[in-house]
Amino acid sequence: MRTDDLVRTLVADHATREGPVGRTFAIALVLALALATALFALMSGPRNDFATVVTDPRFVFKFVVTLTLAASAAVLVLRLASPGVEPRFSALALAAGPALLALGVLVELALIPSSQWTTKLVGQNYLICLSSIPLLSAPPLVAALMALRHGAPTRPAFAGAVAGLLAGGIGATLYAAQCTDDSPLFVATWYTITIAGVTGIGSLAGARLLRW
């Protein structure tokens, strides 16, 4: 193929320009959120005492952690979608969610007697937690990976992992409304394990699907 011919052909295609990555992300995530929320409603929806528990600090704290994680991952994944954008600060911001959670764990350890630590950590719903969060994370993970494919990530595995963190954060946020285990000890254990799993899946999928 002659280079001149290629240039002429690319110029002929110049009117077909795809939309910005940010918009693709927004559309994909809104659709995924709707799907995940529908799944959540099918699974049993918010817990029965939701109305009374919305002011409970431990209950609210779960959302602070998961939403912080989701928001920081969303900012980073968007940067990773474009070549030549250094993610430095937004990569550091990913630590905000885990740092908050660690703080919450320390406060919880100070507040409750050590005889209760194990009970609070194990909780009652860890099996449901281990299965629900990945399920609720699936639609946002697929959406984020599709949006990344529309972009041009130069670090496919890393971008996939951050997509997994974002999806895990969204899945965990929905699940937190249903789960009756509110102790930061429970969250730090079971939420972390499941979100790490979703992140791993995202990373593996990214390495395979996000090369361009």
Binding site: S82, G84, V85, A152
Partner: peptide, 28 residues
């Protein structure tokens, strides 16, 4: 060179017009 040119063409929507274009091209 042709593959890079094609990639620049197909991925040009990932360049943010408010950023310098050099780092974007170099990364591709």
């Amino acid at each position: 060179m042709q593959e890079t040119l094609l990639a620049i063409h197909l991925k040009r929507h990932t360049w943010d017009a408010d950023r310098p274009i050099g780092p974007w091209i170099r990364a591709i």
